[in-house]
Amino acid sequence: MNAAAPLATLGRATLAMLGAVGRFTIWLGQVLSHVLRPPFYAREFRNALMQIGYLSLPVVGLTALFTGGALALQIYAGSSRFDAQFAVPQIVAIGVVRELGPVMVGLMIAARVTSSIAAEIATMRVTEQIDALVTLSTHPLKYLAAPRVLAGVVVVPLLVAVGDILGILGGWLVAVTRLDFATHEYLQNTVDFLDATDITSSLVKGAAFGLIATATGCYAGMNAGRGAIGVGRATKSSVVMAAVMVLAANLLLTEMFFSR
């Protein structure tokens, strides 16, 4: 076996990955240009807001509520080892607003919205509906991708805000019912401890995750292979890609906002 073969394989894989990143980046640039250029499809935008935002509220709310409660229990258990139980409200607030709120919402959106967008658009592709759009003088990126991506950027920060509030609420519920905290003291500590950067970072992460979740769904759907297997692969790959990109973007944004 040629000694350079593993290197060649690695090189090919790297080039393929860079090629895929390049194609996605160019495609995303085209979508964003369609967001800014008329005609605008207001009805499709409103539908996307409803699908991505309003209909995601139950799953986002429940996830945040349970996660906030579990976080309060864990922090109490950990901090009681060195008599620091008083810090539960502050750490729950920081943990939820800076990290868990946006990341949980991002992952939930990747699971619920990215998969649904990818499956819908991939089905449209394999049943020639996207070709039909072109023949009806409608640009598929403008009609299918631009409204969804814009809606994701607009509405996911709002979902994150709801997730943050409900996450803190979950922590408060557990703290006052199970850990003997007083409501006023808990909420006052939470409000006092959070600052504007925490909230800004949370909302910016939400916008970035909304962009990632919707764009990956649209991209995978529009590039789906043939038949049911093509739809299945597009759906699966879009969710994996969106989840990994959400976590990677979270690291980058955390570094940007909070590294000293």
Partner: peptide
């Protein structure tokens, strides 16, 4: 189109 390609 062959399959109709109606927007479902």
């Amino acid at each position: 189109f062959q399959g109709g390609a109606l927007f479902d």
